[in-house]
Write a protein that binds this DNA or RNA. Structure first.
Lengths: 360, 360
DNA sequence: TTGTAAGCGTTATCAG
DNA sequence: CTGATAACGCTTACAA
């Protein structure tokens, strides 16, 4: 059977037509028929098999392009038990972080033909593991990317490992093989903040930590303490208070810290939300920031640059971490675990100095 | 062939085992075999067909529960050309809004057995429609939910309509059939803000609009003007300035508004981001908010309650809108377009008074 | 290098 | 009310 090749003058058609063509998708059979080869050969071309003659490949690719053909992920999945779907598992109150992650992951996904399915869940749920597996199985996800703090749950990870389901965890300390991990070095970042505070001349420094059950919290706290100790500064135990990362607890912790007779001259909070709470409390107490009190946060979320005074904070390149995670997981899915292990696993956050800190 | 029904004493097993069971999912054939009926009958039960004997149904359901069986969406999709996947199309700079939407949609999705696939896109792209269709076709999405401002693009909607692909648009004015729409009444909300300003005694009022190409911007502006006119107040033309909804343009617009000799005593901005910019500009100019200037925004995003002074603003129940959208689209997908048209299509935003406004 | 045929787990058709 | 049997669009042994 022979076909006249349609000239590429599609511009002349009404735009609606093109769209409809795109909509009613053709199948592998159409391609095979038009190219005068077997299904199997088309399949080989689609999957980039080496065992295809150059001229055959060109011919098939041409037909594919003409037909605007793209294989059905459903049929593909059914036949090969893959779905070309990645899952994103999180229980994250920070919408900004989440959005960054999604964009980063999607940049890679769309290049490699995967889609992203989102799944908020409850970190503290008894049935978290079951929930996640139900999610994964329901849509036969090829793999999942897990965001903190859920990513810190070792029992989830080991269940995934046991089930041989590819996964990558975004964490703030290495908890798993490098092909399962992308970590932001929160410890080093907090140490850098300590150094900055010390060089500003602060001695009386307070720290508002996040929940101690989160690794990210302990990493930041320890990094901060370590950094300070290099300058011979030690945090007073009563100037270490714990919040839950919310704006409200930031206010409460700050009130506690700033109510005594001797007050700290600088406060480092575990995240920007709480730092914003500190700003609020200080404002209400009539304490001027940064003149009487320096304040810093962690995350560099939207708030940080909008608030008055703008927050000195730590910026993590969440987007980049997400890209790395997506790259790794797709490599793993496609049988390249070894290579995935060699993709960068650690991202260094950076200090962003704004208006909320000042030398003594 | 006959099978002893396994007693339901799964609790006795080690928990790991349960998970693995859950992972390796059984098929419709297993269910059919164990229940001693045909595949077809199991399929009927799954899909809630009426044409199944009560005793048969019970028997099958029992086996399904025991096996923890759930049908493969891939196979289902292949056979029935449905994917049980919903798409979310947006080009939204506001991560908070996006997160709210996702949560709202997912609450409904998970109840009804659908998953959500996300797709950021570029509002201004020439190839937007093609991009969206490629996205839809690639994963054979059952339908899409479109967020503003992309949702305002009529050519996208009509292409979708022509292709008979279910969709729902979240907009700020009714642009489509009610089964294709969930709208937040921004006009009424802005009018309420006007009333509030007027009752506070303000006469010299300025407005920072969003881009006039967005319906949401024109709706809010017209609503505000209408509300004001009820009190005999008219906006001075030079006190209507246009920003692009960013913090930065909020600053610029405010500088312009506040640099003259006679200044407005109140500024209403099209969104919270710009209102935050106004706060910043006022602060830098030494103008006290709310003592010398009242400021209000729109959205009630995270920023609004964290900033100092906390912003008076308009809260939209985004979550609820998202739920309605998901409900409608699933009804439409499942052939119940008529019912979808009768689900509430309009959500009323509400005024939230905080610290940034004050009576004259 | 290429093709044939047998699934993958559902739903749909059409009898009974 | 129930059950064979043929799709659905693709991959994968197994040949050729």
């Amino acid at each position: 059977m022979s076909f006249a090749v349609r000239p590429a003058t599609q511009q002349l058609r009404p735009p609606g037509r093109t769209i409809i063509n795109t909509l009613k998708s053709s199948t592998i059979n159409d391609v095979a028929r038009l190219a005068g080869v077997s299904k199997r050969t088309v399949s080989r071309v689609i999957n980039g098999s080496q065992a295809v003659g150059e001229s055959t490949r060109v011919k098939v690719e041409k037909v594919i392009a003409e037909l605007n053909y793209s294989p059905s992920p459903q049929a593909r999945g059914l036949a090969s038990s893959r779905s070309y779907l990645l899952g994103l598992i999180y229980d994250n109150p920070d919408a900004l972080y989440l959005d960054d992650v999604q964009r980063g992951v999607l940049e890679i996904c769309s290049q490699l033909g995967y889609e992203l399915v989102v799944h908020p869940c409850r970190y503290r749920s008894e049935t978290l593991v079951q929930d996640c597996f139900a999610f994964i199985n329901r849509s036969k996800l090829d793999g999942v990317i897990i965001l903190p703090p859920v990513s810190e749950l070792d029992h989830l990870a080991s269940a995934l490992k046991q089930a041989e389901r590819p996964y990558v965890r975004l964490t703030s300390v290495l908890l798993d093989e490098t092909y399962h991990s992308v970590v932001s070095d929160d410890r080093a970042a907090a140490a850098e903040m300590a150094r900055y505070f010390a060089q500003l001349g602060h001695q009386n420094i307070a720290f508002i930590s996040g929940p101690q059950r989160f690794k990210s919290s302990t990493e930041r706290m320890e990094g901060f303490q370590l950094g300070l100790s290099a300058y011979g500064i030690k945090l007073r135990p009563d100037w270490i208070v714990e919040g839950n990362n919310s704006f409200e607890t930031g206010i409460e912790c700050a009130q506690q810290l700033l109510s005594g007779t001797d007050k700290p001259t600088a406060i480092f909070a575990n995240n920007d939300q709480m730092a914003a709470g500190v700003l609020k409390a200080a404002h209400d107490l009539g304490i001027k920031v940064p003149d009487q009190l320096s304040v810093a946060g962690f995350d560099d979320n939207l708030l940080a640059s909008r608030i008055i005074p703008a927050l000195t904070t730590i910026r993590r390149s969440v987007r980049q971490m997400a890209q790395l995670a997506a790259t790794k997981i797709i490599m793993d899915i496609e049988g390249n675990r070894h290579a995935a292990g060699h993709v960068a696993a650690k991202v260094a956050p950076t200090l962003v100095v704004r208006e909320s800190t000042k030398s003594l």
